[in-house]
């Protein structure tokens, strides 16, 4: 396999989609915390954590060096767990999620991109893993 950098080719597009979610989630969380944090402190804290994960994943994927790959893998694994847990919980106990979050019902409000993104991210990190030199 030829050497493909994680932030080149398809990786460039992946970073952009991550960046859009990072921007959207951060801005939304910023507004929620600044204007109405008292209404739902737990939900808005979770929302801020999700935003932070998207930001970390974006930066790590964009940098693409050895340490960044590890950071990206961890962040994206947490992201996948988050979308699966929140997605399932929002179906099992919808009353606990009064206002829709980006991960509610597996991101169906966002064309399921929040569910596809971590799977694509982990696949791409795996595909571009450094080949050990003999």
């Amino acid at each position: 396999m030829s050497e493909t950098r994680v932030n080149r080719g398809f990786g460039r597009v992946l970073v952009v989609v991550y960046a859009v979610f990072a921007l959207a989630a951060t801005a939304r969380s910023f507004v929620q915390i600044l204007t109405r944090f008292d209404e739902a402190p737990v939900a808005y804290t979770l929302s801020a954590a999700a935003a932070l994960i998207y930001v970390v994943a974006t930066v790590a994927l964009a940098r693409g060096d050895k340490t960044s790959r590890r950071v990206a893998t961890t962040a994206i694994a947490i992201e996948l767990a988050g979308v699966l847990i929140v997605g399932t919980a929002s179906l099992v106990a919808p009353s606990a999620f009064p206002s829709a979050s980006v991960w509610s019902t597996f991101g169906s409000g966002y064309l399921f991109i929040p569910l596809a993104l971590p799977i694509l991210g982990l696949w791409w990190l795996h595909r571009t893993r450094p080949v050990p030199e003999d």
Partner: peptide, 25 residues
């Protein structure tokens, strides 16, 4: 501007894909 900066050195069709995403956002 951010999309343009990000693909400044990309010579593949990935650059076109990035602009496509940006123009939809």
């Amino acid at each position: 501007p951010a999309a343009g900066w990000w693909i400044r050195a990309e010579k593949s069709r990935a650059a076109s894909a990035v602009l496509l995403v940006a123009l939809l956002v």
